[in-house]
Design a protein around this nucleic acid. Structure first.
Lengths: 234, 234
DNA sequence: CGTCCATTTGATCAGGGTCAAGACGAGTGG
DNA sequence: CCACTCGTCTTGACCCTGATCAAATGGACG
């Protein structure tokens, strides 16, 4: 493996405020790894030997039920940690992480986590803050699934993706990695058929443009009003 | 306020392995507080001035949507922490906590959290482990909402409550605090009507016995097979 | 050019939400 | 002690959202 340059991680929030020598020390413990599209970074139930930082690409975190159904828990963007089971006192990964495109990650052996957290308090605190933020998001997702209609959930999911990974194009804001109807269905607890029907309806209304594994949001604001649309069951 | 005796907290996992003097030090910073049934321990969006340990009673943690719908995120049992927003880098509570029965809690001012975590590493680690465990549970809840039928979700919810707070009676295992059909509906993303129908159906089959704000599970194992019952949408 | 996968779209239908009444039981005030 | 009230629970009727089933279309890629 080649020497890793500290510029790789200098700009990442969780390493903010560390001395160059510290960054080098952290990188020294890491190995860099490429993950081809559709390959897994780590697998649900697998021994949690490492934790990871995504340097480039997009990763989806997926939980699979015993009967084979899948739920996409979240998408990871560059600069985010993943597989931090160790920080939570777990020894196995609770979900799988699949590269949505070719990715580059840094990997550290799990056992160095406590060491790093002790040596660099900001890193430890940042990790916990990440975990806390994810707990909030996940709880918000529970509320959404429990109280909102499918249309609102799908609209919200698209808006979240746009915010997280949107790239401006002449048509509108493009979700910057390949995403299928099936993927959107697995994020929102519905079926690809329903997602397809919603997208074509929205396309007719000019809210989005979409194609094969591609979605562009043309009118985020209108989509937002749709996402907030009135209540339902309960 | 009267002096707090260390026996109050000596048996609680998160304080395990601390010297008596440490326990006294921790208690010295706490105040004890009674919360009458249906009163809130803390409120969603409110300034997170304190964090809490439930000593006695049962508390439900509730998120309310802008349009007034409620979702019960979890029930807290004696010995568990709640309102630990500070540990997650938040300044407001993300949910409300309501006493399901008359309760006794210990409360610490939020700002002492970092101090306690630094002084008692086990306490800090224990808190994070709690947060991690809750993240896992919440993600499992998302998967359940996204992939399971209402009947299975309600069955699971009852089994969780039985495991958490069940008390053996001659009829079976009683959920040890008042819980309404509406409460169960808010835990599972359905309506009180559907919960009522399910419970009467189960009662006819001899799986449960239930009454006003009271549920006893007679045949946990049969209920479990029902909860695991085959797949569905997706 | 053929194969495979993503997508679309129609038809059907059922799970469970909504609407509407009532029954039941516990607590309250007279 | 009784009447009343309020909140919980039950139950029936109806119907809508969205899942399921089934096929066909259309790109992408080897």
């Amino acid at each position: 493996m080649s020497r890793l340059d500290r510029s790789l991680i200098a700009g990442i929030p969780i390493f903010q405020g560390m001395a160059p020598a510290d960054l080098d020390g952290i990188l020294h413990k890491a190995r860099s790894q490429r993950i081809a599209k559709d390959q897994t970074v780590f697998e649900q139930e697998g021994e949690a030997h490492s934790f990871f930082l995504l340097l480039d690409g997009h990763v989806r975190v997926v939980k699979t039920t015993p009967d084979g159904q899948q739920v996409i828990v979240r998408y990871i963007s560059p600069g985010e940690l993943m597989g931090i089971a160790h920080a939570l006192g777990r020894t196995t990964y609770p979900a799988s992480a699949v590269a949505a495109v070719d990715c580059v990650v840094l990997a550290w052996p799990g056992p160095v986590w406590p060491e790093m957290a002790a040596t660099f308090p900001n890193f430890g605190a940042g990790t916990y803050k990440t975990v806390g933020a994810r707990l909030q998001e996940t709880q918000a997702h529970v509320v959404e699934l429990a109280t909102k209609q499918v249309e609102q959930r799908v609209a919200h999911a698209l808006l979240r993706l746009v915010k997280q990974t949107g790239r401006k194009t002449e048509d509108g804001i493009l979700i910057d990695f390949p995403i299928s109807r099936q993927d959107i269905a697995e994020m929102t607890g519905t079926t690809l058929h329903t997602v397809s029907r919603l997208l074509t309806a929205w396309e007719d209304k000019g809210l989005v443009k979409s194609g094969r594994q591609k979605v562009t949001v043309v009118e985020p604001h209108l989509l937002f009003t749709l996402a907030e649309g009135q209540a339902d069951k309960g």
